[in-house]
Design a protein around this nucleic acid. Sequence first.
DNA 1: CAACTAATTATTAATTTTATAATTACTAAT
DNA 2: ATTAGTAATTATAAAATTAATAATTAGTTG
Lengths: 254, 254
Amino acid sequence: MKAYDSSKYVTPDGYTADITVFTILSEKKEKKAPPEMTLHMMLIQRKETDSEGNPNVEGGKWAIPGGFIHPDETGIDAAVRELNEETGVAGLHIRHFGVYDKNGRDPRGWIISNAFYAIVPESSLVNRRAADDAADVKLFSMDDVMNLDLAFDHRDIITDALAIIRTEMIRTTTAKNFLPEEFTLSELQRVLLTVTNDPKIASDPVFFAKAPKLPFIELALDAAGQPKKTTRHSYRPSRLYKFNGIDVIESIYG
Amino acid sequence: MKAYDSSKYVTPDGYTADITVFTILSEKKEKKAPPEMTLHMMLIQRKETDSEGNPNVEGGKWAIPGGFIHPDETGIDAAVRELNEETGVAGLHIRHFGVYDKNGRDPRGWIISNAFYAIVPESSLVNRRAADDAADVKLFSMDDVMNLDLAFDHRDIITDALAIIRTEMIRTTTAKNFLPEEFTLSELQRVLLTVTNDPKIASDPVFFAKAPKLPFIELALDAAGQPKKTTRHSYRPSRLYKFNGIDVIESIYG
DNA sequence: CAACTAATTATTAATTTTATAATTACTAAT
DNA sequence: ATTAGTAATTATAAAATTAATAATTAGTTG
């Protein structure tokens, strides 16, 4: 690269990656009722001291997994590495969604962070364990997250990530990742209700009337061509549906 | 990094960035009619020979601007640099959308490409000029693009980028980037028709009835609170509208 | 047999959409 | 002064969908 004396300029004091990881937890509380589903995210608790025994900045606080990007790696490389180091989680499909660079966001100085997000099935997170700079790692419901005294500007990052997750869930067929291949309408409904309380979804008569007609959903049929049914959530057999792979783009113009 | 003898393995022969850049050209053909707008993209013509005078692979063919990523830079760094080097264009907001790694896509060997896209106002591209590996640089209508004998797998990359551009235009208020701050409904209509021929947009009575009621569009008012009008496209004064900054997420579930 | 509950369907009024026709507000041409 | 043209706008009537709620069904359990 061209001659450039960085000592002559104010340069960033650090460059980091933060990875917001969401999942949907499903809890079957009643034998005959659909499971309760809630959006959760995985956070790590920062160790009180760093690797040299010195008091850690924002030590003890819950935070988004992440850490410093090394000069020889990209942001996403660092994100993948840090996530694995701090939580033991790997193989997630993460995406970049923003850069957080407000001066003052970190007491250590001018620290710029690249934020990533993923929403994954719970099975991807079962083997998590805190390590490296993390004293603990847990899944929190979004209500609980918002009641935490989070480190740095992580509340802002989480708010933005949440908006993206919600948009994706509502605008695309992302919900299918949290459903069995053949699902009931109430199961789909519960997944969607983890990110919205739109009455068109919350209302059984409205949703049950509309959903079977959506172009990307179809009845699951048995070998004889009859609609498949299940009694896993009710005494009355419920019809099973599946996504048919059609991608829909809903126009905002009508 | 850990000890690793890459000579023991088959490794990629190259790692590149390709940048699909779209714009919408607006041509006022009649004194009293809205302009014709068409989606275009900027392509470069590959030089016949490389910098050492040897015949260039796919020399003479039209292609997406781009080139090899250096080890000391990220894909997006390379994309920005190559775009500027080959076309003189800079300052665009580009986004990554895919990796093209099919073996055989490039006769030179196992070449992996990161694809980026941007859709920008024409004003961002007026100072383009071919340089570096590019013999020429031009804007092509999408019809013309699809009739070109493009280099490598660039037709596939372009097809995917186009789908993303269309989705963004239909799903979000991206159209506003191609309109004056205060626009007529027919101007908005023409922008949208560059990416779709949906009759709900193509039909004047339908579109003119619906558009004013959209939550993210409102009438432009003068100082006296009266609707602003223009005769730039018709003898009869047409109402002017503007986007009001509201972001809408249209649910695919109803 | 009655009661319960998730799933499903029905009902009716209100609203929107569909498909097209008609009108308006300006000109330009005669 | 009148007619014709055209982009923008509005009207019309039938069809379809939505809104809001009630009712019913299909299985159980007690």
